[in-house]
Design a protein around this nucleic acid. Structure first.
Lengths: 150, 150
DNA sequence: TTAATATCCTACTAACTATATCGGAATAAT
DNA sequence: ATTATTCCGATATAGTTAGTAGGATATTAA
């Protein structure tokens, strides 16, 4: 798994939409809040729309909303959709891995398959509802800290 | 963590040298056994030499040997040396991660740091001695299977 | 001494990917 | 009509990946 800027932006955008669930957010708003280049974000959201993760409302007062409840979208879904398989090497997710020597019993492949499963286990069990809640707590903590320090 | 062809080749080369520990193996031999392009492998072994993972013997009958015992070289060392950090995103291993919104308490970063630790835990605890033993078992199994089927 | 067999070193390249930017068309609300 | 928005395709540029090419240097066996 390698998360690119694009993948990172996609995750941030989806999390942003989860925080503002069911109220359409424009590309401009998300772009500013999450510090993502406007035109790049535009592309990403169009891609997410094709993947049916978000829905759009065109025209004035338009914007994007999540296509499903935050609890029904997992981190893994978005990562895979934007940045590809979470396995660290292609032979670990290929349907028919190219045969290594020693008749395909490649120990390295076995290890990377294990790691791939570990990663999948993790990312497939984190929903954007989870992330949203954790984000809220972080904000609360930061706020508290600011209250003391000001 | 993303394992490139180069990284995969490096791991295979080191494992090959572990299988033939203390007997120098030429680039040509490793290249043929592991099905790695000769000239590419040459480069990789030179790099591994600079990293002090292998030693070389020049001239006729020369070749490469491991610089340490297989039990003292981990999968993680080679992966990091050739393909870089095992963390899935740069903010997860950067000394000073660029501040996200919400005052740096980025939940996504937290998740990817967790995953990075999981991966590190795994790759840092697999030595080439482990891999060698597993490889040997796989070969034995394959041999047994062939004995039956022929 | 010479030929063969190795490693060593630097440079080059073609294809692909990442990270955007640009310009405008279509749509909807005011 | 104006403004704010999504939609869409093209372009650009830099970096990475996966090699290849050609020769210099070292060692050894005949």
């Amino acid at each position: 798994m390698k998360i690119t800027f694009k993948g990172d932006y996609a995750l941030k955008a989806v999390l942003d939409l989860a925080m503002y669930y069911d109220k359409p957010q424009s590309v401009d708003e998300i772009s500013k809040r999450q510090d993502i280049p406007y035109k790049f974000l535009e592309q990403i959201l169009l891609q997410l729309k094709k993947g049916r993760f978000v829905k759009s409302l065109r025209g004035r007062n338009g914007g994007y909303v999540l296509a499903h409840k935050p609890a029904q979208i997992t981190l893994g879904q978005i990562v895979r959709f934007v940045d590809g398989p979470v396995e660290p090497i292609s032979c670990a997710f290929a349907a028919k891995p190219s045969p290594c020597n020693y008749s395909g019993n490649c120990v390295l492949r076995e290890v990377f398959c294990d790691i791939g499963k570990m990663i999948a286990e993790k990312v497939d069990n984190i929903t954007f509802e989870n992330l949203k809640e954790r984000q809220k707590k972080n904000i609360a903590k930061t706020k508290k800290y600011l209250d003391y320090s000001i």
